[in-house]
Design a protein around this nucleic acid. Structure first.
Lengths: 248, 248
DNA sequence: CAAGCGAATTGGTCAGACCTGTAGCCGGGT
DNA sequence: ACCCGGCTACAGGTCTGACCAATTCGCTTG
Protein backbone atom coordinates (compact mmCIF):
# COMPACT_ATOMS: atom_id res chain seq x y z
CA UNK A 1 0.00 0.00 0.00
CA UNK A 2 2.60 2.49 0.87
CA UNK A 3 4.23 1.56 -2.40
CA UNK A 4 1.34 2.85 -4.39
CA UNK A 5 2.05 5.27 -7.09
CA UNK A 6 3.04 8.56 -5.74
CA UNK A 7 0.78 11.46 -6.11
CA UNK A 8 0.62 14.00 -8.83
CA UNK A 9 4.22 14.96 -8.53
CA UNK A 10 7.56 13.50 -7.66
CA UNK A 11 6.95 14.79 -4.15
CA UNK A 12 9.34 12.93 -1.92
CA UNK A 13 8.88 13.33 1.82
CA UNK A 14 9.69 16.98 1.76
CA UNK A 15 10.36 17.97 5.30
CA UNK A 16 10.52 21.53 4.14
CA UNK A 17 7.29 23.27 4.83
CA UNK A 18 5.97 24.91 1.71
CA UNK A 19 5.05 28.15 3.42
CA UNK A 20 8.42 28.22 5.12
CA UNK A 21 10.16 27.85 1.79
CA UNK A 22 8.32 30.89 0.52
CA UNK A 23 9.43 32.98 3.48
CA UNK A 24 13.00 31.80 3.07
CA UNK A 25 12.99 32.57 -0.60
CA UNK A 26 11.79 36.10 -0.11
CA UNK A 27 14.23 36.64 2.71
CA UNK A 28 17.04 35.60 0.45
CA UNK A 29 15.88 37.98 -2.25
CA UNK A 30 15.84 40.81 0.22
CA UNK A 31 19.17 40.01 1.80
CA UNK A 32 20.76 39.71 -1.61
CA UNK A 33 19.53 43.16 -2.42
CA UNK A 34 17.30 42.01 -5.24
CA UNK A 35 14.21 43.30 -3.51
CA UNK A 36 13.90 46.72 -1.95
CA UNK A 37 11.15 48.50 -0.02
CA UNK A 38 8.43 49.52 -2.44
CA UNK A 39 9.30 46.92 -5.05
CA UNK A 40 6.61 44.73 -6.50
CA UNK A 41 6.96 41.00 -6.20
CA UNK A 42 6.35 38.77 -9.20
CA UNK A 43 2.71 37.70 -9.70
CA UNK A 44 1.64 34.92 -7.40
CA UNK A 45 1.31 32.46 -10.25
CA UNK A 46 4.84 33.08 -11.47
CA UNK A 47 6.33 33.17 -8.01
CA UNK A 48 4.68 29.88 -7.14
CA UNK A 49 6.33 28.21 -10.11
CA UNK A 50 9.64 29.85 -9.37
CA UNK A 51 9.71 28.61 -5.78
CA UNK A 52 8.18 25.30 -6.67
CA UNK A 53 5.05 25.32 -4.53
CA UNK A 54 1.38 25.55 -5.30
CA UNK A 55 -0.43 28.83 -5.22
CA UNK A 56 -2.36 28.19 -2.01
CA UNK A 57 0.90 27.33 -0.31
CA UNK A 58 2.52 30.40 -1.74
CA UNK A 59 -0.35 32.46 -0.42
CA UNK A 60 0.11 30.98 3.03
CA UNK A 61 3.69 32.10 2.93
CA UNK A 62 2.70 35.58 1.81
CA UNK A 63 0.20 35.79 4.64
CA UNK A 64 3.04 34.96 6.96
CA UNK A 65 5.15 37.72 5.48
CA UNK A 66 2.19 40.03 5.66
CA UNK A 67 1.79 39.28 9.34
CA UNK A 68 5.40 40.32 9.84
CA UNK A 69 4.75 43.56 8.02
CA UNK A 70 7.21 42.71 5.28
CA UNK A 71 4.86 42.70 2.31
CA UNK A 72 1.56 44.39 1.53
CA UNK A 73 -0.81 42.88 -1.05
CA UNK A 74 -3.01 45.09 -3.18
CA UNK A 75 -5.74 43.35 -5.05
CA UNK A 76 -5.48 43.80 -8.76
CA UNK A 77 -2.18 45.58 -8.54
CA UNK A 78 0.28 43.14 -7.04
CA UNK A 79 2.11 42.38 -3.83
CA UNK A 80 4.61 44.96 -2.69
CA UNK A 81 7.48 45.05 -0.27
CA UNK A 82 6.55 47.32 2.60
CA UNK A 83 8.07 50.75 2.23
CA UNK A 84 6.56 52.55 5.14
CA UNK A 85 8.31 53.10 8.42
CA UNK A 86 9.61 49.86 9.90
CA UNK A 87 7.07 48.44 12.27
CA UNK A 88 6.52 45.12 13.95
CA UNK A 89 2.96 44.01 13.60
CA UNK A 90 1.26 45.30 16.70
CA UNK A 91 -1.27 42.50 16.79
CA UNK A 92 1.56 40.26 17.84
CA UNK A 93 1.93 42.09 21.13
CA UNK A 94 -1.83 42.16 21.50
CA UNK A 95 -1.93 38.39 21.39
CA UNK A 96 0.93 38.00 23.80
CA UNK A 97 -0.83 40.38 26.14
CA UNK A 98 -4.02 38.36 25.97
CA UNK A 99 -2.27 35.02 26.28
CA UNK A 100 0.10 35.82 29.09
CA UNK A 101 -1.81 38.49 30.89
CA UNK A 102 0.41 41.47 30.27
CA UNK A 103 -1.00 44.35 32.26
CA UNK A 104 -1.23 47.96 31.27
CA UNK A 105 1.35 48.77 33.90
CA UNK A 106 3.75 46.29 32.34
CA UNK A 107 3.33 48.06 29.05
CA UNK A 108 3.89 51.45 30.56
CA UNK A 109 6.97 50.29 32.34
CA UNK A 110 8.43 48.82 29.18
CA UNK A 111 7.70 52.05 27.41
CA UNK A 112 9.39 53.97 30.16
CA UNK A 113 12.56 51.93 29.95
CA UNK A 114 12.62 52.36 26.19
CA UNK A 115 11.75 56.02 26.00
CA UNK A 116 13.86 57.16 28.91
CA UNK A 117 16.96 55.66 27.38
CA UNK A 118 16.04 56.86 23.95
CA UNK A 119 15.40 60.42 25.04
CA UNK A 120 18.92 60.48 26.42
CA UNK A 121 20.28 59.43 23.07
CA UNK A 122 18.14 62.01 21.34
CA UNK A 123 19.61 64.69 23.57
CA UNK A 124 23.03 63.67 22.36
CA UNK A 125 22.30 63.40 18.67
CA UNK A 126 19.05 64.94 17.47
CA UNK A 127 19.51 67.02 14.35
CA UNK A 128 18.15 70.55 14.09
CA UNK A 129 15.41 69.32 11.78
CA UNK A 130 14.35 66.70 14.28
CA UNK A 131 14.38 69.26 17.06
CA UNK A 132 12.13 71.53 15.08
CA UNK A 133 9.66 68.71 14.53
CA UNK A 134 9.54 68.17 18.27
CA UNK A 135 8.94 71.85 18.81
CA UNK A 136 6.07 71.85 16.33
CA UNK A 137 4.38 68.98 18.08
CA UNK A 138 4.69 70.68 21.43
CA UNK A 139 3.10 73.73 19.89
CA UNK A 140 0.38 71.54 18.48
CA UNK A 141 -0.35 70.19 21.93
CA UNK A 142 -0.74 73.64 23.42
CA UNK A 143 -2.97 74.56 20.51
CA UNK A 144 -5.37 71.70 21.11
CA UNK A 145 -5.83 71.71 24.85
CA UNK A 146 -9.58 71.75 24.35
CA UNK A 147 -9.66 68.89 21.86
CA UNK A 148 -8.44 65.71 23.57
CA UNK A 149 -8.39 63.59 20.42
CA UNK A 150 -6.31 66.13 18.54
CA UNK A 151 -4.11 66.52 21.57
CA UNK A 152 -3.50 62.80 21.65
CA UNK A 153 -2.32 62.83 18.05
CA UNK A 154 0.27 65.48 18.81
CA UNK A 155 1.26 63.57 21.91
CA UNK A 156 1.94 60.48 19.87
CA UNK A 157 3.80 62.40 17.22
CA UNK A 158 5.97 64.11 19.79
CA UNK A 159 7.10 60.85 21.27
CA UNK A 160 7.80 59.49 17.82
CA UNK A 161 9.87 62.52 16.99
CA UNK A 162 11.94 62.09 20.12
CA UNK A 163 12.50 58.45 19.24
CA UNK A 164 13.50 59.47 15.74
CA UNK A 165 15.95 61.92 17.27
CA UNK A 166 17.90 59.02 18.72
CA UNK A 167 18.80 58.03 15.20
CA UNK A 168 18.30 54.40 16.07
CA UNK A 169 15.67 52.71 13.91
CA UNK A 170 15.51 49.63 16.14
CA UNK A 171 14.55 51.67 19.16
CA UNK A 172 12.10 53.71 17.12
CA UNK A 173 10.40 50.53 15.95
CA UNK A 174 10.17 49.00 19.40
CA UNK A 175 8.80 52.18 20.90
CA UNK A 176 6.20 52.47 18.16
CA UNK A 177 5.06 48.94 18.79
CA UNK A 178 4.67 49.27 22.51
CA UNK A 179 3.31 52.79 22.45
CA UNK A 180 0.66 51.90 19.93
CA UNK A 181 -0.88 49.44 22.31
CA UNK A 182 -0.92 51.98 25.08
CA UNK A 183 -2.48 54.61 22.89
CA UNK A 184 -5.07 52.20 21.61
CA UNK A 185 -6.53 52.08 25.08
CA UNK A 186 -5.93 55.73 25.72
CA UNK A 187 -7.98 56.77 22.71
CA UNK A 188 -11.06 55.48 24.44
CA UNK A 189 -10.53 57.29 27.68
CA UNK A 190 -8.77 60.49 26.71
CA UNK A 191 -12.02 62.38 26.58
CA UNK A 192 -12.03 62.27 30.34
CA UNK A 193 -8.54 63.63 30.59
CA UNK A 194 -7.88 66.58 32.81
CA UNK A 195 -4.69 68.50 33.20
CA UNK A 196 -3.86 68.47 29.52
CA UNK A 197 -2.05 71.72 30.09
CA UNK A 198 0.16 70.16 32.69
CA UNK A 199 0.91 67.30 30.33
CA UNK A 200 1.82 69.70 27.54
CA UNK A 201 4.05 71.52 29.94
CA UNK A 202 5.93 68.32 30.71
CA UNK A 203 6.42 67.65 27.04
CA UNK A 204 7.83 71.09 26.62
CA UNK A 205 10.31 70.44 29.40
CA UNK A 206 11.41 67.24 27.70
CA UNK A 207 11.90 69.13 24.48
CA UNK A 208 13.96 71.81 26.17
CA UNK A 209 16.19 69.24 27.82
CA UNK A 210 16.81 67.53 24.49
CA UNK A 211 17.48 70.81 22.77
CA UNK A 212 19.84 71.79 25.58
CA UNK A 213 21.80 68.60 24.91
CA UNK A 214 21.32 67.49 28.48
CA UNK A 215 20.81 63.71 28.36
CA UNK A 216 20.53 63.33 32.09
CA UNK A 217 17.81 65.91 32.36
CA UNK A 218 16.02 64.55 29.31
CA UNK A 219 15.91 61.11 30.89
CA UNK A 220 14.63 62.48 34.16
CA UNK A 221 11.91 64.55 32.54
CA UNK A 222 10.79 61.69 30.33
CA UNK A 223 10.68 59.32 33.24
CA UNK A 224 8.63 61.71 35.29
CA UNK A 225 6.30 62.39 32.43
CA UNK A 226 5.58 58.74 31.68
CA UNK A 227 5.02 57.99 35.32
CA UNK A 228 2.50 60.80 35.46
CA UNK A 229 0.87 59.65 32.25
CA UNK A 230 0.46 56.16 33.65
CA UNK A 231 -1.31 57.49 36.69
CA UNK A 232 -3.46 59.75 34.57
CA UNK A 233 -4.62 56.91 32.41
CA UNK A 234 -5.29 54.70 35.40
CA UNK A 235 -7.49 57.39 36.84
CA UNK A 236 -9.29 57.90 33.53
CA UNK A 237 -10.03 54.21 33.40
CA UNK A 238 -11.31 54.04 36.92
CA UNK A 239 -13.64 56.86 36.09
CA UNK A 240 -14.78 55.29 32.85
CA UNK A 241 -15.68 51.89 34.16
CA UNK A 242 -15.40 51.56 37.88
CA UNK A 243 -16.59 47.97 37.80
CA UNK A 244 -14.27 46.85 35.04
CA UNK A 245 -11.89 44.15 36.15
CA UNK A 246 -8.64 43.24 34.54
CA UNK A 247 -9.36 41.54 31.27
CA UNK A 248 -7.47 38.40 31.80
CA UNK B 1 -26.03 28.54 6.86
CA UNK B 2 -25.50 32.07 6.16
CA UNK B 3 -24.79 31.01 2.65
CA UNK B 4 -23.29 34.23 1.54
CA UNK B 5 -24.76 33.92 -1.91
CA UNK B 6 -22.82 36.66 -3.48
CA UNK B 7 -24.87 37.14 -6.50
CA UNK B 8 -23.40 39.47 -9.04
CA UNK B 9 -26.23 41.80 -8.25
CA UNK B 10 -26.39 42.22 -4.49
CA UNK B 11 -22.66 41.82 -4.00
CA UNK B 12 -21.82 44.26 -1.27
CA UNK B 13 -18.17 45.26 -1.20
CA UNK B 14 -17.28 42.76 1.47
CA UNK B 15 -13.71 43.72 2.10
CA UNK B 16 -13.53 41.21 4.91
CA UNK B 17 -10.42 39.21 4.32
CA UNK B 18 -10.88 35.55 4.98
CA UNK B 19 -7.51 35.15 6.66
CA UNK B 20 -8.19 38.22 8.74
CA UNK B 21 -11.47 36.77 9.91
CA UNK B 22 -9.63 33.70 11.14
CA UNK B 23 -7.18 35.79 13.14
CA UNK B 24 -10.00 37.84 14.61
CA UNK B 25 -11.93 34.75 15.54
CA UNK B 26 -9.04 33.19 17.37
CA UNK B 27 -8.23 36.46 19.09
CA UNK B 28 -11.76 36.62 20.36
CA UNK B 29 -11.58 33.08 21.65
CA UNK B 30 -8.41 33.91 23.53
CA UNK B 31 -9.61 37.19 24.94
CA UNK B 32 -12.84 35.57 26.07
CA UNK B 33 -10.80 33.01 27.94
CA UNK B 34 -12.07 30.08 25.90
CA UNK B 35 -8.58 29.28 24.71
CA UNK B 36 -5.56 29.04 26.93
CA UNK B 37 -1.87 28.41 26.29
CA UNK B 38 -1.38 24.74 25.53
CA UNK B 39 -4.95 24.15 24.38
CA UNK B 40 -5.61 22.40 21.12
CA UNK B 41 -7.64 24.19 18.49
CA UNK B 42 -10.49 22.37 16.75
CA UNK B 43 -9.47 20.43 13.65
CA UNK B 44 -8.97 22.60 10.62
CA UNK B 45 -11.94 21.16 8.82
CA UNK B 46 -14.29 21.92 11.69
CA UNK B 47 -12.81 25.31 12.39
CA UNK B 48 -13.15 26.27 8.75
CA UNK B 49 -16.86 25.52 8.86
CA UNK B 50 -17.27 27.28 12.19
CA UNK B 51 -15.70 30.48 10.94
CA UNK B 52 -17.26 30.19 7.52
CA UNK B 53 -14.18 30.13 5.30
CA UNK B 54 -12.61 27.46 3.17
CA UNK B 55 -9.83 25.34 4.48
CA UNK B 56 -7.07 26.96 2.40
CA UNK B 57 -8.15 30.36 3.69
CA UNK B 58 -8.25 29.04 7.21
CA UNK B 59 -4.75 27.72 6.76
CA UNK B 60 -3.58 31.13 5.58
CA UNK B 61 -4.94 32.58 8.76
CA UNK B 62 -3.25 29.94 10.86
CA UNK B 63 0.04 30.66 9.12
CA UNK B 64 -0.45 34.25 10.09
CA UNK B 65 -1.02 33.27 13.70
CA UNK B 66 1.94 30.97 13.50
CA UNK B 67 4.11 33.83 12.29
CA UNK B 68 3.08 35.78 15.36
CA UNK B 69 4.03 32.90 17.59
CA UNK B 70 0.48 32.45 18.84
CA UNK B 71 -0.16 28.92 17.61
CA UNK B 72 2.06 25.96 16.80
CA UNK B 73 0.85 23.30 14.36
CA UNK B 74 1.94 19.70 14.83
CA UNK B 75 1.28 17.41 11.93
CA UNK B 76 -0.97 14.55 12.82
CA UNK B 77 -1.69 15.85 16.29
CA UNK B 78 -3.42 19.19 15.86
CA UNK B 79 -2.80 22.89 16.17
CA UNK B 80 -1.97 24.17 19.63
CA UNK B 81 -1.93 27.52 21.32
CA UNK B 82 1.66 28.38 22.14
CA UNK B 83 2.46 27.68 25.76
CA UNK B 84 6.15 28.42 25.83
CA UNK B 85 7.62 31.68 27.06
CA UNK B 86 6.15 34.68 25.29
CA UNK B 87 8.26 35.55 22.31
CA UNK B 88 7.83 37.73 19.27
CA UNK B 89 8.85 35.90 16.17
CA UNK B 90 12.44 36.91 15.71
CA UNK B 91 12.33 36.56 11.95
CA UNK B 92 10.28 39.72 11.97
CA UNK B 93 13.21 41.75 13.21
CA UNK B 94 15.50 39.93 10.80
CA UNK B 95 13.41 41.15 7.92
CA UNK B 96 13.24 44.68 9.18
CA UNK B 97 16.99 44.63 9.58
CA UNK B 98 17.49 43.45 6.03
CA UNK B 99 14.92 45.83 4.59
CA UNK B 100 15.90 48.98 6.41
CA UNK B 101 19.56 48.34 6.95
CA UNK B 102 19.62 48.02 10.71
CA UNK B 103 23.25 47.73 11.73
CA UNK B 104 24.73 45.57 14.40
CA UNK B 105 25.51 48.69 16.37
CA UNK B 106 21.87 49.73 16.23
CA UNK B 107 20.94 46.36 17.67
CA UNK B 108 23.49 46.60 20.42
CA UNK B 109 22.37 50.07 21.32
CA UNK B 110 18.74 48.99 21.52
CA UNK B 111 19.77 46.11 23.66
CA UNK B 112 21.71 48.43 25.90
CA UNK B 113 18.77 50.74 26.43
CA UNK B 114 16.53 47.79 27.23
CA UNK B 115 18.88 45.85 29.44
CA UNK B 116 20.29 48.81 31.33
CA UNK B 117 16.83 49.91 32.36
CA UNK B 118 15.76 46.38 33.08
CA UNK B 119 18.77 45.57 35.23
CA UNK B 120 17.84 48.55 37.37
CA UNK B 121 14.37 47.13 37.85
CA UNK B 122 15.81 43.72 38.62
CA UNK B 123 17.96 45.23 41.32
CA UNK B 124 14.82 46.58 42.91
CA UNK B 125 12.64 43.49 42.65
CA UNK B 126 14.44 40.24 41.86
CA UNK B 127 13.32 37.39 44.08
CA UNK B 128 15.80 35.18 45.89
CA UNK B 129 15.09 32.37 43.43
CA UNK B 130 15.83 34.62 40.48
CA UNK B 131 19.02 35.80 42.13
CA UNK B 132 20.19 32.26 42.59
CA UNK B 133 19.57 31.50 38.92
CA UNK B 134 21.75 34.45 38.03
CA UNK B 135 24.46 33.19 40.35
CA UNK B 136 24.36 29.76 38.76
CA UNK B 137 24.79 31.17 35.29
CA UNK B 138 27.74 33.26 36.41
CA UNK B 139 29.29 30.13 37.84
CA UNK B 140 28.59 28.36 34.56
CA UNK B 141 30.47 31.06 32.71
CA UNK B 142 33.52 30.73 34.88
CA UNK B 143 33.33 26.97 34.46
CA UNK B 144 33.39 27.13 30.67
CA UNK B 145 36.07 29.69 29.97
CA UNK B 146 37.73 27.23 27.63
CA UNK B 147 34.58 26.34 25.72
CA UNK B 148 33.33 29.44 23.92
CA UNK B 149 30.09 27.87 22.71
CA UNK B 150 29.17 26.66 26.17
CA UNK B 151 30.18 30.03 27.57
CA UNK B 152 27.86 31.76 25.15
CA UNK B 153 24.93 29.67 26.35
CA UNK B 154 25.50 30.72 29.93
CA UNK B 155 25.97 34.29 28.79
CA UNK B 156 22.56 34.23 27.13
CA UNK B 157 20.92 32.57 30.09
CA UNK B 158 22.39 35.08 32.49
CA UNK B 159 20.96 38.00 30.58
CA UNK B 160 17.61 36.26 30.42
CA UNK B 161 17.63 35.68 34.14
CA UNK B 162 18.34 39.35 34.79
CA UNK B 163 15.46 40.28 32.51
CA UNK B 164 13.24 37.84 34.34
CA UNK B 165 14.30 39.47 37.58
CA UNK B 166 12.60 42.67 36.50
CA UNK B 167 9.30 40.85 36.76
CA UNK B 168 8.11 42.54 33.58
CA UNK B 169 7.15 40.06 30.85
CA UNK B 170 6.99 42.75 28.19
CA UNK B 171 10.58 43.77 28.75
CA UNK B 172 11.67 40.16 28.92
CA UNK B 173 10.05 39.48 25.58
CA UNK B 174 11.57 42.49 23.89
CA UNK B 175 15.03 41.74 25.22
CA UNK B 176 14.78 38.14 24.07
CA UNK B 177 13.85 39.26 20.60
CA UNK B 178 16.66 41.74 20.18
CA UNK B 179 19.26 39.67 21.96
CA UNK B 180 18.52 36.63 19.87
CA UNK B 181 19.53 38.46 16.74
CA UNK B 182 22.73 39.64 18.31
CA UNK B 183 23.61 36.16 19.53
CA UNK B 184 22.81 34.65 16.18
CA UNK B 185 25.76 36.50 14.75
CA UNK B 186 27.88 36.02 17.80
CA UNK B 187 27.61 32.26 17.61
CA UNK B 188 29.62 32.33 14.43
CA UNK B 189 32.45 34.43 15.77
CA UNK B 190 32.64 33.52 19.42
CA UNK B 191 35.33 30.96 18.76
CA UNK B 192 37.71 33.82 18.24
CA UNK B 193 36.78 35.44 21.47
CA UNK B 194 39.49 36.40 23.89
CA UNK B 195 39.10 37.76 27.35
CA UNK B 196 36.26 35.47 28.28
CA UNK B 197 37.49 35.72 31.83
CA UNK B 198 37.14 39.46 31.80
CA UNK B 199 33.64 39.11 30.39
CA UNK B 200 32.69 36.64 33.10
CA UNK B 201 34.06 39.05 35.65
CA UNK B 202 31.81 41.79 34.37
CA UNK B 203 28.79 39.54 34.61
CA UNK B 204 29.68 38.78 38.16
CA UNK B 205 29.81 42.46 38.94
CA UNK B 206 26.37 42.93 37.45
CA UNK B 207 25.07 40.10 39.56
CA UNK B 208 26.56 41.55 42.72
CA UNK B 209 25.03 44.93 42.03
CA UNK B 210 21.60 43.38 41.52
CA UNK B 211 21.96 41.28 44.64
CA UNK B 212 23.06 44.34 46.58
CA UNK B 213 19.82 46.06 45.52
CA UNK B 214 21.76 48.89 43.97
CA UNK B 215 19.87 49.87 40.80
CA UNK B 216 22.22 52.67 39.89
CA UNK B 217 25.27 50.46 40.04
CA UNK B 218 23.50 47.64 38.20
CA UNK B 219 22.66 50.02 35.39
CA UNK B 220 26.21 51.29 35.20
CA UNK B 221 27.75 47.82 35.17
CA UNK B 222 25.31 46.57 32.57
CA UNK B 223 25.95 49.56 30.38
CA UNK B 224 29.68 49.11 30.62
CA UNK B 225 29.43 45.42 29.93
CA UNK B 226 27.32 45.77 26.82
CA UNK B 227 29.56 48.46 25.48
CA UNK B 228 32.53 46.18 25.97
CA UNK B 229 30.66 43.28 24.38
CA UNK B 230 29.88 45.36 21.35
CA UNK B 231 33.52 46.20 20.86
CA UNK B 232 34.53 42.61 21.40
CA UNK B 233 32.18 41.37 18.76
CA UNK B 234 33.28 44.04 16.33
CA UNK B 235 36.86 42.95 16.78
CA UNK B 236 35.92 39.29 16.38
CA UNK B 237 34.23 40.11 13.12
CA UNK B 238 37.15 42.09 11.78
CA UNK B 239 39.38 39.19 12.55
CA UNK B 240 37.04 36.70 10.93
CA UNK B 241 36.97 38.39 7.57
CA UNK B 242 39.73 40.92 7.28
CA UNK B 243 39.78 40.82 3.51
CA UNK B 244 36.05 41.27 3.17
CA UNK B 245 35.56 44.15 0.86
CA UNK B 246 32.51 46.03 -0.20
CA UNK B 247 30.29 43.27 -1.38
CA UNK B 248 27.19 45.21 -1.20
C1' DC C 1 -7.21 65.01 -28.37
C1' DA C 2 -9.62 63.64 -24.37
C1' DA C 3 -12.93 60.86 -22.05
C1' DG C 4 -14.80 56.49 -21.45
C1' DC C 5 -15.01 51.54 -21.89
C1' DG C 6 -13.46 46.79 -21.74
C1' DA C 7 -9.99 43.13 -21.84
C1' DA C 8 -5.84 41.46 -19.60
C1' DT C 9 -3.60 41.18 -15.32
C1' DT C 10 -3.38 40.07 -10.50
C1' DG C 11 -4.77 39.15 -5.91
C1' DG C 12 -8.72 36.55 -3.17
C1' DT C 13 -11.39 32.52 -2.53
C1' DC C 14 -13.29 28.09 -2.91
C1' DA C 15 -13.93 22.92 -3.63
C1' DG C 16 -12.29 18.38 -3.70
C1' DA C 17 -8.77 15.13 -3.47
C1' DC C 18 -4.62 12.77 -1.84
C1' DC C 19 -0.37 12.19 1.04
C1' DT C 20 2.05 11.92 5.49
C1' DG C 21 2.68 11.89 10.33
C1' DT C 22 0.59 10.95 15.02
C1' DA C 23 -1.84 8.59 18.55
C1' DG C 24 -4.57 5.18 20.32
C1' DC C 25 -6.79 0.62 19.86
C1' DC C 26 -6.32 -4.29 19.65
C1' DG C 27 -4.54 -8.61 18.95
C1' DG C 28 -0.86 -11.97 19.35
C1' DG C 29 3.36 -13.27 21.45
C1' DT C 30 6.08 -13.67 25.70
C1' DA D 1 -1.16 -11.03 32.89
C1' DC D 2 1.92 -8.04 30.61
C1' DC D 3 4.19 -6.09 26.78
C1' DC D 4 5.05 -5.20 22.09
C1' DG D 5 3.82 -4.95 17.34
C1' DG D 6 0.93 -3.55 13.60
C1' DC D 7 -3.31 -1.47 12.18
C1' DT D 8 -6.57 2.34 11.77
C1' DA D 9 -8.88 6.68 12.47
C1' DC D 10 -7.71 11.30 12.75
C1' DA D 11 -5.39 15.65 11.75
C1' DG D 12 -2.28 18.55 9.48
C1' DG D 13 0.21 19.45 4.68
C1' DT D 14 -0.16 19.96 -0.09
C1' DC D 15 -1.82 20.05 -4.81
C1' DT D 16 -4.98 20.79 -9.00
C1' DG D 17 -8.16 23.57 -11.08
C1' DA D 18 -11.51 26.77 -11.26
C1' DC D 19 -14.00 31.14 -10.44
C1' DC D 20 -14.65 35.91 -8.40
C1' DA D 21 -13.16 40.84 -7.64
C1' DA D 22 -10.38 44.79 -8.09
C1' DT D 23 -7.07 47.31 -10.66
C1' DT D 24 -4.56 48.80 -14.93
C1' DC D 25 -3.96 50.22 -19.20
C1' DG D 26 -4.60 50.19 -24.05
C1' DC D 27 -7.99 50.99 -27.36
C1' DT D 28 -12.01 52.79 -29.20
C1' DT D 29 -15.00 56.57 -29.80
C1' DG D 30 -17.09 61.18 -29.55
Amino acid sequence: MNARTKGPTSGPPRVEQAAGRVVEHVRRLIEQGQLHPGDRLPPERDLAVEIGVSRPSLRSGLQKLGAMGVVVPRQGAGTFVSDGPPKLENSSLRFLAALHGFTRDDMFEARRVLEVGTSGLAAERATPEQLSVMAEEVAGMFASLDDPQAYLVHDIQFHRSVAAGSGNPVLTTLIDTVAEMVYETRRLTVERARDLRQSAEMHRRIYRAVKARDPELARREMSEHLDMARQAQASEEREAKPARRTTR
